[in-house]
Design a protein around this nucleic acid. Structure first.
Lengths: 106, 106
DNA sequence: TTGACAGGTGACCTATTAGTCACATAACTT
DNA sequence: AAGTTATGTGACTAATAGGTCACCTGTCAA
């Protein structure tokens, strides 16, 4: 399994994306804290976090008996750079900003 | 199935990512042209293109009996914006540029 | 040191998915 | 009209992934 394969497989599951959302909002959470936010057993959450960690989307640090989880944005940025060149990036950003503006006005 | 679910599921397969790579290099290709680049039957490729189209990653236009395929970068940019804020984006871009520079020197 | 707390492992069942095939439709060419 | 080219559909099989459970290791506190 290649590196980017691991990243995309990891992102394919909605529970794992939700975990990334939680860590994007606030870093450094423990398994137990993350578990309480999902309707799933601790084992399920641990399994998902392991997949995210092996993909490099989450990095961890041990502190005593706790394991702290942090979001790593590098793989996300690499996905972006794979299919969006500098020229298109500017156009697309403008387009999305315009979309947001129109949605707020309606 | 939600919209973003379709996008991430679509990106989870290496053949589909390769199809996006082909379209990123050059847009407006037909099924038959794309098929010749993969070690897979036409049916398999057609199925993958359908998944990409339903996810909005590929948009199509008919021209006679041919169906032309184009890459749509919008969903990719939205993945980026979901987990990378403006502040982090600048840091991470600098970091990745530095990484490329170091790799070229070695 | 005893109990409670935080996390890890391997097996198991179920549901989903990738890829192929036989068959069908539609458009271009001569 | 007839043959060729480009694409679409539904069923089928084998492989993979999500979630749970019983059980285990390591850390903290009194």
């Amino acid at each position: 399994m290649t590196d980017d394969d691991r990243v995309f497989k990891a992102l394919a599951d909605p529970s794992r994306r939700f975990l990334l959302d939680l860590l994007f909002a606030r870093d450094g959470r423990t398994l137990t804290e993350l578990e309480s936010a999902l309707a799933m057993t601790r084992f399920g959450v641990a399994k998902h976090l392991r997949v995210l960690e092996e993909a490099g989307l989450v990095v961890t640090r041990r502190s005593g008996r706790e394991k702290l989880h942090f979001l790593n944005p590098v793989p996300i940025r690499q996905i972006h750079d794979r299919w969006i060149d500098k020229y298109t990036e500017h156009q697309i950003t403008t387009l999305i900003d315009l979309k947001h503006t129109l949605e707020e006005e309606s």
